[in-house]
Structure formats: C-alpha cells, structure tokens
Amino acid sequence: MTRAEISLSVNGEPVEVTFAPYKTLLELLREDLALTGTKHGCELGECGACAVLIDGEPQLSCLLLALECAGRSVETVEGMAESWQSGAGLHPLQAAFADLGAAQCGYCTPGILLTAKALLAHEPEPSRERIQEAISGNLCRCTGYQQIVEAIEEGARRMADESHR
C-alpha cells in the first residue's frame, strides 16, 4: 500500500507523519497520532463531535482528508490547556465547562470547546444567540444545551478576567 507523508503543526508542535493516503484528519489524529480526545459520532459531517481548529477555524475533521492538512496548524482538545497560560492547567473554557455541568457524558465536549474557542477569538463577548448559532452544528444529546451556553458565557468572562490580570 502506498503511504503518504506530510508535515503539519499539531497543538503547536511540528509533526511529520506517514499514513494511508485515504485517511481523514480525524483518523490521522486518532489512529496515527494517538490523539483520541477528538471524537466521532457519524464520520459524515452531521454531528460536530470531530470538530478541531485548523489555523484557528473550526472544521469537521471527519470531512477533511489528512493530505489536505499539510503545512496547516491543527489544534485539538489536547492542546487547549497549553494554548492558555493559566496556572490552573485548564483553559478557562474547559474550567467553566467542568464547573457548570456543560459536559455530561463529555463526548460532544471536545468539539464544542474548540468551536467555542474559535467564536471567542472573534467575538470575546458574544450574545447568547450568537453562541447558540455558533454551536448549532454540534449535537449534544445529554445537556439540552443550556448549561453549555452558560459555560461558554462564563468561559468568556473568565478569559477576560484572566487576561486583564
């Protein structure tokens, strides 16, 4: 079987990886890079569980060929805490999700965290409606979304507080 090889940046670290060329980014992350924090619920672009950030923008990793990601910068949930210089070891969004019940089973959580992070990068103080819109492609079967929306609002507040400190 022919193998493909690319270099890319994953969670801020340069990575060179060889893989079966038909693989999606989701498979590359989970199977070849052992980053199993990225989840899947359909592998058809329907659930949002596999969302990661590519050059800072949320993308469904199940719909991207790994080959398309050569030279790009990928951020997964594993890199979130490090992307924020907080002493607590968690990104403020992660901490807010854990504190406010936004993660029940936690399966949709990585995708929603990264989607929320991208939203806050553009709009540090989004309205409730904007948050609901931003995560409307991420299905969560457990929470009814309300605690997720509240945790994103709280995360935004904590990010503002921590950056002003």
């Binding site: 924090g37 990225t38 594993e78 805490a81 968690l90 992660q94 854990a98 019940g101 936690g106």
Partner: peptide, 21 residues
C-alpha cells in the same frame, strides 16, 4: 460542585470504548 470526572471530560482524557487501543 464540579463533578469528580469533570476534568477528564473537558481535556479529552475520558477513555471511551473506541479510544481503547
């Protein structure tokens, strides 16, 4: 309270069945 497994769930460290390798 933050649930006892809260940290695992927000860091992607909860090991679901398909994460077992």
């Amino acid at each position: 309270r933050r649930r006892v497994d809260g940290r695992a769930k927000v860091t992607g460290l909860t090991r679901f069945a398909d994460d077992v390798v």
